[in-house]
Amino acid sequence: MNLWVCIPAVLALIGLRFLKTHILGWLAAWWICVFVILKFGMVPPMPSSIIGLYVAILTSVLLLYLTSDTERMSQAGNFLMRFFGERKFAPYLWTAAVLIPLLAGTNAYLAASKEVEAPASGRTIHPAPPGEMTFKGKKIDLIKASNPFRELETKDPTAFETHVAAGRKVYYQNCVFCHGDNMEGDGIFAYGYDPLPANFQDPTTIGMLQESYLFWRIAKGGPGLPEESTPWSSAMPAWEKFVSEDDIWNVILFLYRFTGQKPRAQEKAE
């Protein structure tokens, strides 16, 4: 959210509460403020189709507000009658009559002369994992599976450290090229792949996932993704072809260690 836009817009609406405004001015102020928030106040920007949808809802709500009260209606009606009928409003009327088609025409002109852009494809970043998977012929239940070395963290810290160190080696010989030295998804080849590699320092990636989910994503890679996650463009290799089961669990330990994040806990079976 861009607070520099949103706060003034909200303040303007609050200020409006204390002013005696003509109903049409009031409606226009609401319409403009909400539009400005939707169009310029959102980071990242919303698609124009969504903005259009919200604006349509907004317009109908404002119209409903206007028509739900006879006093408001007559206030608006009287003004419109005067605007169209009285001589002193004639210059404004004719200026508006010229400006509106001009603006609409310019808008259409700009839209039509826009350069074509490659179609963007949306994708689901964290799709639902399957219930179970096979790893080199061995069935793994992804709902129950947990990192076999995780318990060493408390039981045998020395052994745990050797697993983390092994994971570190795996990371810097296999993953670093895309996911980067600092795990921010900016390795030396990252810029050439689309979608971009995951940024593990981002708290919404591995911090929100269970270790078994990571195991599935690492073992099956891009080709193992469901359709909604565009498996045809992901450069994530199916690591089961290159590294052992133990090494995948090791590298998972290292990912959490290096980023200081914690895996999401396994849901307790009721």
Binding site: A97, A108, Y109
Partner: peptide
């Protein structure tokens, strides 16, 4: 040419305006 859709839009607006007025 982008003039064509622009002209169409403007003409539509003028028609509606004329009606309303």
């Amino acid at each position: 040419s982008p003039i064509v859709p622009a002209g169409k839009q403007a003409a539509a607006c003028i028609l509606i305006e004329a009606g309303v007025i």
